[in-house]
Design a protein around this nucleic acid. Sequence first.
DNA 1: TTGTATGCGTTATCAT
DNA 2: ATGATAACGCATACAA
Lengths: 355, 355
Amino acid sequence: MSEIVTIKDISKKCNVSSATVSKALNGHSDIGEETAEYIRAVAREMGYLPNSAARALKTNRSNNIGVLFIDKTQSGLAHEYFSAVLNSLKVEAERRGFDITFISRNIGNFKMSYLEHCRYRKCDGVVIACVSFDDPEVIELVKSDLPTVTIDHVFDNTTAILSDNINSVRSLVNYIYDRGHTKIAFIHGEKTSVTQKRLASFYKTCEELGISVPDKCVKAAAYHDPKSSAVATNELLRLSDRPTCIMYPDDFSFIGGRNEIERQGLSIPGNISVVGYDGINLSQALRPRLTTWKQDTETIGREAASKLIDAIENPKISIQQQITVPGELIEGETVNRLLAVKPSPKQNRAAISQR
Amino acid sequence: MSEIVTIKDISKKCNVSSATVSKALNGHSDIGEETAEYIRAVAREMGYLPNSAARALKTNRSNNIGVLFIDKTQSGLAHEYFSAVLNSLKVEAERRGFDITFISRNIGNFKMSYLEHCRYRKCDGVVIACVSFDDPEVIELVKSDLPTVTIDHVFDNTTAILSDNINSVRSLVNYIYDRGHTKIAFIHGEKTSVTQKRLASFYKTCEELGISVPDKCVKAAAYHDPKSSAVATNELLRLSDRPTCIMYPDDFSFIGGRNEIERQGLSIPGNISVVGYDGINLSQALRPRLTTWKQDTETIGREAASKLIDAIENPKISIQQQITVPGELIEGETVNRLLAVKPSPKQNRAAISQR
DNA sequence: TTGTATGCGTTATCAT
DNA sequence: ATGATAACGCATACAA
């Protein structure tokens, strides 16, 4: 088909040197405006495209950012939260002229570390998310000279984009409390730093509100795993002093809880109230619509790309920072309003047994 | 940190020329076995990594495959079906030494076509999926000299990996019929070639079974859109001669149908039977477990990568082919067994009104 | 303001 | 079996 056109081809057509063409194309100021414009016009007309490999070889810049989105279970692509973040990240990266490369071990026969993969592809920087942050290879990556941005995890020497796990749980608990609940159960995912933040915020907020939290009301489950949340739900529903509201680790896990609740002939929110976490599409397709916390995946992904590229393009003035991205409460229909006034324990128990 | 080590560095250490090192590293046969082994050992010890940019520049091969996974709505990442395919594709590509680059328009300030993006990044080939296949830019891509594999769509000059949309619908309809249903409704997505295949298979199978399909029982909705499926469900439920089983465009859309069914006080499968399509995680987390068709995303993605890389590595002997990937029926709990014997129309009507 | 020359790291051709 | 050399396309230091 159409032959590949190079700078040399353009230089011939324009009767200038290839250096002049290169400068004109890159907008250097030391080229006459008219010649520059002419060269650019010819380049456009000839369908010129820069050769990214040649450019990378020369400049040691690839305009490529690595993305480490790996999970114990599978690739991070399975989680709607992470795929949404990735998508936003990709959009912003492309807007600023960067492509994305998935980083992994084992590329072909070469077994390489994450860092080696980045070096092999000459990635200008790397975004790390949804990965075991204590993996030595991740540490190696973070400690390297490569610009790095982490999502939902803080290392002391990198920029981090954080979904606001403290305020989210605080808001949810306050919302639940305002609707008259004082017996609130919390099902959490695997013990990551995110989980620890949410759990701490849960305890702290309850304490501020004067709500006691029995150990029985805090259950461990796993993220994105309806089964373990179903088990936890079952245990909670069997408590003699049953909670009136259950908080789930994420919207998808709630499906398991919902099954268990319905299996016991209870209705949401009539007999038991619930909230999710994430605000994925599914949560608003369900009936009743799930009350949940929407994480701002669009901003998280965009900021991750943006801060990383800032660091790449301005290595000296860039400083590590932690950016906390607020989310928003989605008020669905799954938290019952129990009483107009703050209930005493006795009233509360009455409200439960009225089912 | 550790400096980048090049072939030249190795050649110095080994007291051979850089040409010899290159050949040894690439396993050429014209190097003494002992020297070659020695060179490789030194390279390993020094932490040598090939410079992909230099190699690409020289060989005109990037070991990079482009991936066009774009949807009207968003990126294809939102659909669990496509993200699963992509993940499998990525795994196979990496196993064979290829990285993946997302192809899009608008990279930086350069507005480029899909083909131009591929050329810019020197992609060795491209996989096309979940895209408007009638987009002129996609056509341009397919008609180019770039090796191409399409997923779920056939062009006459490319290799295609196809989920078996004919047999899947046939199997579903047969399964439903075997359980005593003769009034089967079909809700379909936007009119793509996939949709047309499924619809044709639906009509054909019904005809083979001697089932008549009133126009009222075939409804248009949109993929991945619970709302439109809810609307279609509502219309179907209001029919005087109501279907006993509804087939949904996909598992996620079924959520909308389910809401509508429950809103009307009907139960699944007691009052109305349903099947989904895709077999995503959600479908088996629901209660009752959804009867659906599981598309073999793992094979689809793997084959797409595999065939594309075959074509890249062996351009002469590679031929276009269409590969149909079978799926499997997931027997959930959402199709009621109506009668032991094939029902006459009258019995059938009685069964319906008994609710 | 424009041109010349060089080298980025690699592979391939052709000698030796 | 090994080495010298050139070339891939581009950007830049320096000369003009």
